[in-house]
Design a protein around this nucleic acid. Sequence first.
DNA 1: GCATATTTGTCCGTATGTATA
DNA 2: CTATACATACGGACAAATATG
Lengths: 223, 223
Amino acid sequence: MASENVVMSQGSTAAAVSEQLSDLITEGRLAPGSRVSDAALALRLKVSRNTVREAFRLLAHDGLLVHEFNRGVFVPFVTSEDVRDVYRLRRVIEPQVVRALTPADTHRLGRLRQAVLDAEAVSSEEDWPRVGTANMHFHRALVALANSPRLDLTMRRLMAEQRLAFAVMDDPRPLYEPFVGRNKALLGLLGEARFEEGANFLESYLADSEGRILAACERRDSA
Amino acid sequence: MASENVVMSQGSTAAAVSEQLSDLITEGRLAPGSRVSDAALALRLKVSRNTVREAFRLLAHDGLLVHEFNRGVFVPFVTSEDVRDVYRLRRVIEPQVVRALTPADTHRLGRLRQAVLDAEAVSSEEDWPRVGTANMHFHRALVALANSPRLDLTMRRLMAEQRLAFAVMDDPRPLYEPFVGRNKALLGLLGEARFEEGANFLESYLADSEGRILAACERRDSA
DNA sequence: GCATATTTGTCCGTATGTATA
DNA sequence: CTATACATACGGACAAATATG
């Protein structure tokens, strides 16, 4: 019912709308599979339909919405297959990035360190959605070390979908909480240029996360 | 100057517009770095600006246009760095897909075979843009064997940019012509389940293409 | 199966702000 | 600095497709 006007945070109103929507979706406040009406949203946010549709395209670009012609846009229903696919790519990309690092890269870990600090701060407040965001930033910063714009783009998409998958968890705590310590531990290894160890650690860590989310998916599907 | 109306090929007019534009860009008929005015294009194609902007989003999604806020959309200027980045990803993705194949996959090469046939047909007519399209289809079909929707998406983007990079070639023939035979040879190896050989062949083949395009880039940059 | 209501896709005209000549 | 051109955003409108009764 809250119908506040959207602030033009950094220029584009469409970007502001998409950010708001992105939060709603990744926090699970919009049920997967539900349709999002552009007209209704335009009314609620007091922007024009065209602007909302522009925001839809931005989100569809990251896989946070799916667009079906003449039917509308929907919050994607994340299947077990989707989760497996996301992790299949992450397991190829992230360890490979770590293994390709050189000692010179140990001085480029600023953004990873910041993400760890953010995660610790919001974790003590048990604000799990924000822990998810900090985790997302950590892994994107990790991949950014490879200096590949196209890999960055792929990773952004993957982590957006990752957060979407998190929304299926009934109790997010057991999934989110381990992230904080693990990211910190990985950062420590990277800082000491122990890349092979870091890559192995990351691999088992990703496998563990995947297992937890798949288990939650199956619990949901059987219900 | 031709101002024919756009046909609604598969429902969406925006999709039709984006296809037309895609051809113009990948054939190099729109100079890299040039601005594409939505108003002008809307006038020429006799569709509304909103529709054109929608098409812009679709193309920006594949990297065929870049959008700068409050400045407009531009045909990207492909740098040597871009070419290196595209090939860095392709060299990781494609050989890995091939190495992960199993003998059962030898019966799923229909789309690759079709792409080879198409390439041979248009190659005899020296229609190089179409050879480029057939080559794009071949490599996308190759990656599709991995059954990963997210990998498919990444590959679609990469191959779209790949075609964009082709546009820098002054004489496309020496670049395009070898594709036909090489794709056919690779298909032959895959059909006989000689995957390791195929992966190695693909690696050297990709390295060769990259070198040719980079050389063309440097010729262009020095001019 | 049909008629209706809703929603989407598309279009237009305009106002406002921004960048560039 | 002014002026022009252009991009963003707006709201209203209509036809076509879809969903609903």
